[in-house]
Write a protein that binds this DNA or RNA. Structure first.
Lengths: 203, 203
DNA sequence: GTCTATAATTTGATAGAC
DNA sequence: GTCTATCAAATTATAGAC
């Protein structure tokens, strides 16, 4: 995650490995990234990875998923908290996601979506790690919707719709190398948010 | 794609290879699927794959993406055409996608999403193949919306929203092994469709 | 804890007999 | 066109010196 503090020379080896893995998973996925490539990018000796992660690639992968999932949640939350109201915050989230895509050559999207699709049918520990990250994102967003007066169930549904639109937009924008889908997703998320808020205040 | 006609013993070798690749890509993605695994599942000798696909794995991958993309478009179109009106058709599409997920142990989702995310930053020919499939899906759905009286631009946007919700739902449902997100996506797609139709008839 | 060398396996791809 | 044997390189993982 190049957005959140680079790997300074003083960063402990273990952290450098996790951060290097996160950046590689973002672009190449879990299966397409080799252990050697990770330690090389982390400027660490090859043996270190098995010293810190005796469970091998699967253990490292799960830790990378949880780390980058938490980092991305923080990034989005801070971007949204900077806005004056929820509708503007939703719009800002999609605009910011589009900016990140464009400035990175359509590489920086969701840090765990590729991994989640790759491993959902092949590795249960990794699948669970991805599911827990998604669930934490849903709950964090649902809290924000609830703070605006929506009921628990409606807030959760809106949070899921927000994230599904974002994930779908990442997929289409990366494949097409265009931001068209992100604009459509942002507009749809704003419309859904407005409708939810209207329903909450009228009841 | 187990949904569309199995690989009969009389099916030509080349077709069996493409179909076997499609089924494996669906579950394991492009990188996680080996050429040897493909020819084994296709009951074909190893050398055949390089006889029919001299361009190697990348050529085979592009062909699999286009083939399964067309097959999936037909599957969804037929399911939607069986419904009496567009709103019901949209709902049926999401219900059907949920059924396919559930009955396959949350494996049968989008046939090319995993591949698209894996290769978008690493293989230009494969990225283009995925982008063309997505674009054909968007246009096919936009035609359906236009037939209902929507303008070209609004129809295209609604088609994109439909597909982004579906792709996002596939991602969340596979990770969580639950259909909760699919229900939320279907409801959101129905709401967006209703709003689009209302705006078209009032103008 | 750091780092190197290497084992054991699998990968994509090729050559060539039939 | 079918099929087998094999290559060179890459993979995850381990052993063990320092």
């Amino acid at each position: 995650m190049s957005q959140l503090g680079g790997s300074a020379a003083t960063t402990p080896t273990r952290e450098r490995i996790v951060e290097a893995g996160a950046e590689l998973f973002l672009r190449q996925g879990y299966v397409g990234t080799g252990m050697k490539q990770i330690v090389t990018n982390a400027s660490a000796p090859f043996g270190s990875v098995y010293h810190f992660f005796p469970g091998g690639k699967e253990q490292l992968g799960a830790e990378v998923v949880r780390w980058s999932g938490a980092a991305y949640a923080l990034l989005v939350k801070e971007a949204m908290d900077a806005e004056p109201d929820l509708v503007t915050a939703v719009e800002a989230a999609f605009v910011g996601a589009g900016e990140a895509l464009r400035t990175s050559g359509y590489a920086d999207a969701c840090p765990i979506a590729t991994v989640a699709l790759e491993v959902s049918s092949t590795s249960e520990p990794l699948r669970v790690a991805c599911a827990e990250v998604f669930e934490s994102w849903i709950q964090g967003l649902a809290d924000r919707y609830q703070a605006e007066g929506l009921g628990a169930e409606a807030a959760r549904t809106l949070a899921q719709v927000f994230l599904m639109l974002l994930e779908g937009a990442f997929l289409f924008c990366r494949a097409a190398r265009s931001l068209e889908a992100m604009d459509a997703a942002g507009a749809a998320a704003v419309a859904a948010t407005r409708a939810g808020l209207a329903a909450a205040t009228s009841s």
